[in-house]
Design a protein around this nucleic acid. Structure first.
Lengths: 327, 327
DNA sequence: CTGTTAGCGCTTTCAT
DNA sequence: ATGAAAGCGCTAACAG
């Protein structure tokens, strides 16, 4: 059933059908009713692809993440989808697995689909704009990076102050009288660099030399954290700040399995304020980097870029510490 | 830049451009190169919407879930996206929040977009097919329900035997010598009904009367589980089976906070084999309902429905018990 | 091997 | 208020 079939059956032209479909005012009530009746009778469904061809847009945006299974990204994706859904956009999810090649492929495909905008989630996409092919594909698609900097001419950012986030954690520990603090680094994104920088800055403020020797490298995740715990326990610090909640939970488990107590012997702080932090025992003190807020800002920013509101600018969000049992 | 611009600049017809774009064989190498050069020069991007209008498909499928933030759904969505991406499809995520009205809206919108297929994730969508409007919208779109039954003429299912899943849990507890087992019910989907049925069946097999009195109603989630723990502790069972991992973790926390030990005093079993089960302490024994497998089967099923392989049928998956520390 | 032409289903001038 | 016609960017017969 297309607009022609409806027009024929209703005894009007396709323009008139189109008019009633789009609720235009210039249609006689009688005509409108007549057409509507045929529309209803066949439960006509307009073809959004054809509409999109004319409108040069299918009202869709894409969310690029490394992996939607990571709670942080799932939460971001959820907020973005819900918000854009209200604006009558649909959202495509793209999992790159962290592969540049995949990101590049998505960029090309999304450009072909004429998506109205793209949200890059995470600083891992920071180098994406440097890729020539990607830059060419996306040159006229609005891009917003949630907690990253797309490095694209038409790219904007919603940034979270990760340096400050870790500083907050260290400050808190220091105020609680912790003297010997180590930092666990797992991922190696730009955001991770900033966090590490935050650790250095905070340590320097407290007059601690050689903070570099206080950084322990771990694999991301529960197992990675547990593994790193061995090194940590050997160092006997009285506090550890981790770059990610999940790794922090692993670290806690490792410490506890080694016979030490959290927070009595060693305090542990994570990052993200994910659900993990309340599921584990003891509950994890963590830095809330405001996922929901940054996702929402990303949507607003992207929307104004799409609608050409001209009222946009990149923005920055301040994280907050959430104190629970582990510190 | 469209195909006309390219054709003009290359001095050929649009058909020839189309041919090189689609790698058709009947183009002279020299012509092909000439056209390709122009294509490259402008880094031409074909318009997928226009292609879609002709092909009557934009190679996209949709995933309907209640909420992608729920790990079980996130995992399903991830698998589906990755698998369909390999098949050159894109995937739209739709979060209904469990609202029928939202599901209905998505159904209409997805039909307009001419999506090639839809995956319904979870039994919560079981009644969707009964809705007249939805049925009308989806009547010629292949639908696969992951762990549910769409109740649509063109709908197929990948089912997980949830009755068996809970039976497995109860059997395990019985074999460990647990005599006094209770069941915690949270959600109220069809799948939840099956699980409860599994509890009844298992109890009956063990000769326990009045299993209905052994069912405790809880709110879904950590807080819900903790709350329910008060009732549980009052009953003093020696084991509790929960319908969901997250609720189970809450129950464990509540039990432990009440001064009892898991599993010594009360064993706890969850459902889903989610990451939660390894993050909590003690680690949770849980029923693995094979998310990845059911997602993958859903993709295969949907793909064959789309490609009209005619080689499809609904399928069923057997869950497995994963024994950890809590039992 | 290449070009011409007719759609795909819709919106949007422009007449009337 | 309504209709005719052009066009969105592409693919696919059909001719040559």
């Amino acid at each position: 059933m297309n607009i022609y079939d409806i027009a024929k059956e209703a005894g009007v032209s396709i323009s008139t059908v189109s008019r009633v479909l789009n609720n235009k005012s210039n249609v006689m009530p009688a005509t409108r009713e007549k057409v509507q009746a045929v529309l209803d009778k066949h439960s006509y469904t307009p073809n959004a692809i054809a509409r999109g061809l004319v409108a040069r847009s299918m009202k869709t945006v894409a969310v690029l993440t490394v992996d939607v299974r990571v709670p942080h990204y799932a939460r971001t994706t959820y907020i973005i989808e819900r918000a854009f859904s209200k604006l009558n956009y649909h959202v495509l999810v793209c999992n790159t697995g962290g592969e540049l090649e995949e990101a590049r492929r998505y960029a090309r495909l999304l450009a072909e689909r004429q998506v109205d905008g793209i949200v890059l989630v995470g600083s891992i996409f920071n180098k994406l704009g440097q890729d020539e092919e990607v830059a060419a594909c996306l040159h006229n698609i609005p891009v917003v990076s949630a907690n990253g900097q797309p490095g694209l001419p038409n790219g904007y950012s919603v940034l979270v102050d990760d340096v400050q986030g870790i500083e907050l954690a260290v400050e808190h520990l220091a105020q609680k009288g912790r003297q010997n603090i180590v930092y666990v680094k797992d991922l190696d994104t730009d955001s991770a660099q900033l966090k590490q920088q935050g650790f250095y800055t905070a340590m320097q403020k407290r007059g601690v030399k050689n903070a570099k020797n206080r950084v322990i490298k771990a694999e991301y995740g529960l197992a990675g954290g547990e593994e790193a715990a061995a090194q940590i326990v050997a160092l006997r610090p009285d506090a550890v700040v981790c770059a990610e909640d999940l790794t922090a939970v692993g670290v806690m488990k490792g410490i506890i399995n080694a016979g030490l107590k959290v927070p009595e012997d060693i305090a542990v702080i994570g990052y993200n304020n994910s659900e993990y932090s309340v599921i584990c025992t003891p509950e994890l003190t963590t830095v809330d980097n405001k996922v929901e807020m940054s996702a929402l800002f990303s949507v607003q920013l992207l929307e104004s870029l799409i609608e050409k509101d001209e009222s946009f600018s990149s923005m920055s969000i301040q994280p907050e510490l959430v104190v629970r049992q582990s510190s």
